[in-house]
Nucleic acid binder design. Structure first.
Lengths: 194, 194, 194, 194
DNA sequence: CATGAATGAGTTTTCATTCAT
DNA sequence: TATGAATGAAAACTCATTCAT
């Protein structure tokens, strides 16, 4: 039974994702999340200690899943060039598929106090580090330039992709995000390949 | 006396910038802005029609000033390569100097509802377009590759710089933002120069 | 226990009636109603969606009860003449007994915006229609003149009684309202009986 | 020059009448009245000591004018029957012509606290007394019944007319108010003539 | 007399959180 | 564990009134 029956806290997180995506964190009443999850308002507080706690847990969990995917795919790429392309593809594809998550990570994740911002920053770090590892491996394999400032460039890569996602998200007219993969990666490679 | 006496709406905007930077837009009560500006709560509403109006006016004004600086400097650069470097330098230097503004543009600008997000997006557009113009000029002058997807790359450049600023902003330990200019620009140039 | 325990929304309405009667709708803060009802401010909004909603519900409920009494009594009157007298007696007696209700219906009911005024007008309509029915029945039974303009006269009767109540309500010196029944009805009958 | 130049307080009252009629007393900001009158907000307080004072003065003045018209016309009527008809005609015609005034007297006049209500009640009293005088004259001339309870009946007449005006005022569909004169007066006469 | 910028008390409403059941 | 009614602090905004010019 444990297999099919979702954990109730999972249920609440799922509901919160939808509600945050629709209304934004600050405009999303806890009662609405409760209703969406099919539980009583008070029940939420048996699983989370505050509304903020929901958001943090949510982001951590979802980004954790994403990072796992990144890691897995990267480990299967022989060539760093392919690893970069794969990461970008997953980055764009997953967020395109899960618009609610994109909404929350791109818009809400930037939110509120420094405290929260930092807490969430930690969730992104593994991804940033993964990018770094790929860069290092590429340098080691002599396919990337040997003078790369990896500490800086990992942020340049992440920031560039991040902005592309945000731009897509708030665009008035819909277009394909995943179609931007090659343009993005080609740009990167020009800058980092020997 | 008119020289010393700042316009009261300017006074309020200045106060709002500080308060927003400290607390974040949603957690900043109008009463706190009023107190910081040394005026009564109601006075705020003689100059702005709502709290949101303060934020929008603030962003528009400050970003407008920034964009003006960009434009002026760019127009003085003969070579597109220098223009790119100048833009990045101003971007990093100005936000390093005005941390409160950085706070609001990097953190608050991303938040709130889609509505506001879009409204503010317009304030950034001129900058994005300026980047585009530099790219085009560089292509025309045959110093940049002739196959650049400018619509995409302008976002890649902006996003990369933006992320570097945000990372600096939320960093636990202080370091120089302006010191990142050359690393950033060199990366860009490798990707776009012939 | 359910017997003694009044519905909480009933409790709030009761409190609102008192407060509205004392201060008038516009001068009555919701917080005061809450205090009078012995609940927290926020509790009010679990039962009513706005302050205006309280007033409308209140009027509708109380006037509804009154109209029910009118209807019942009228149905027990064989002769239209008695029906008229009974209506007037109930009208005067009930409002004399429930001064707070009179206050709200006579003073507050008239106030506020046209919107509200109309909404409340609907609550009075059934009473006006009941008067009309009695008139028609009297004409049919040949005890009232056959040339009565019922659409107009129903308002003349209602308005006349209404003014008597208002005059009584704002009088400096107290006197019996119910003692005016016969004078009022005799006047009416002279005008409408054959 | 005094002839053409309206007194400034008159100007303000005129403006207040329009604004009250449009928005209702409580929703009408003093600043709006000032703007409509073409004076500064503060100027209002040189002529009136409060917003409420404006309303009271306004009603008193306008109703005073009306009562003067009633008195003049009545004094020209030889027969009490005609006097009654004339009063009703003026009552309906004047308010039909001056909808703003009707709005204020019928809706706003009923408003707010008992204090105001009473103050305004005084303005109506002369009219009520005039009705009484006509009734007495008619009894004296033996054209009206000699057993009329004039203290009551004057209110029945006023209330009946008043309600007809209010009904007309809040009606969804427009119709002629003055067309109701004969129906109303015929009803009265049946009740009071010998 | 006239102005109109400034005031700040007062109001409605929302919503995260608690706790008796 | 689960509920959901109740709480009450907080917050945005309005506007009658004042007063320095």
């Amino acid at each position: 039974m444990t297999g099919k029956m979702k954990d109730k806290s999972e249920l609440i997180l799922e509901a919160a994702l939808q509600v945050f995506a629709e209304l934004g964190y600050h405009r999303a009443p806890v009662s609405r999340i409760a209703k969406a999850a099919g539980v009583a308002d008070g029940t939420i507080y048996l699983y989370f200690k505050s509304k903020e706690d929901i958001l943090i847990t949510l982001i951590r969990g979802k980004l954790g899943e994403l990072v796992d995917k990144f890691r897995e795919s990267v480990s299967q790429s022989d060539h760093p060039r392919d690893a970069i392309r794969t990461m970008c593809r997953i980055h764009y594809t997953e967020l395109e598929r899960n618009r609610a998550l994109a909404m929350v990570t791109q818009i809400e994740l930037r939110q509120s106090d420094l405290e929260l911002r930092r807490a969430i920053g930690h969730a992104v770090k593994p991804y940033i580090r993964l990018i770094e590892q790929v860069l290092l491996k590429g340098m080691e394999m002599k396919v990337f330039r040997d003078d790369l400032d990896v500490k800086l460039i990992r942020h340049l890569l992440f920031g560039a992709m991040d902005e592309v996602v945000t731009t897509w998200l708030i665009a008035e007219r819909p277009y394909s995000l995943s179609a931007q993969v090659d343009g993005t990666v080609d740009f990167f490679l020009l800058a980092i390949e020997r």
